Amino acid sequence: MAGLYADEQFPRVVVELLRALGHDVLTVQEASNANLGIPDEDVLAFAVTKERAVLTLNRIDFIRLHASQPNHAGIIVCKDDQQDRQRMATRISEAISNVETLRGMLVRVNRPSQ
């Protein structure tokens, strides 16, 4: 299972739910105070050095980074599901659990249709 790196705005409760599902998630806040407020390019670069896939709600910028810097450990862009955090964590887990490697992949996790 891939290690994940949750960016600064990613919901902490979803991180905890993913951990309960067995995922190895490191947050920006846990990694280092020096990582707070850094540009997205630096978030991705840090994740690459730790061989972790970025977990983010910042879809537009990280989709752009994936296109311009495809050599990464994975990028998971999510639509925020504020109505049901458990469902959000479950959808992320389902999207990545059966994947052998996330290296170079862009994974999109959307909210279910209303």
Rank of each mutant, 00 (worst) to 15 (best):
T49W: 00
Q86H: 07
Q69L: 13
V99Q: 04
L65T: 01
T90W: 12
I75W: 06
F62N: 00
P39D: 13
A45G: 03
P39C: 05
V43Q: 08
R85T: 10
V48R: 12
I76S: 02
L102N: 01
I96T: 09
L36F: 13
L55K: 02
S93T: 13
V43P: 01
R64Y: 11
D84K: 14
L55F: 06
G37Q: 10
V77W: 08
D40R: 02
A89P: 01
D42E: 13
H72F: 12
G37Y: 08
D80Y: 09
H66G: 01
A89E: 03
I38F: 03
I92S: 03
L102Y: 01
V54Y: 02
L55D: 01
K50T: 11
E94R: 05
D81I: 06
T49S: 13
T56H: 04
C78R: 03
N71F: 11
V54E: 02
M88G: 01
P39K: 08
M88V: 10
A53K: 03
I96L: 08
R59N: 03
F46E: 03
V99F: 01
L44M: 14
E100T: 15
T90D: 06
D84S: 05
L55C: 11
R87P: 00
A89F: 09
G74F: 03
N58K: 11
R52T: 10
K50E: 06
A67P: 04
A67V: 09
R52G: 09
R59Y: 11
L102A: 02
L44G: 02
E41R: 10
P39R: 08
Q86A: 09
H66F: 10
L57F: 11
Q83E: 15
K79S: 10
Q83D: 12
Q86G: 00
R87Y: 02
N98I: 15
A47S: 12
A47Q: 04
Q82L: 12
H72M: 13
H66P: 02
I76M: 04
S68Q: 14
D40L: 07
L57V: 11
L57P: 00
C78H: 06
D84M: 07
G74P: 08
I75C: 07
D81G: 03
A95H: 00
Q82E: 10
Q86V: 15
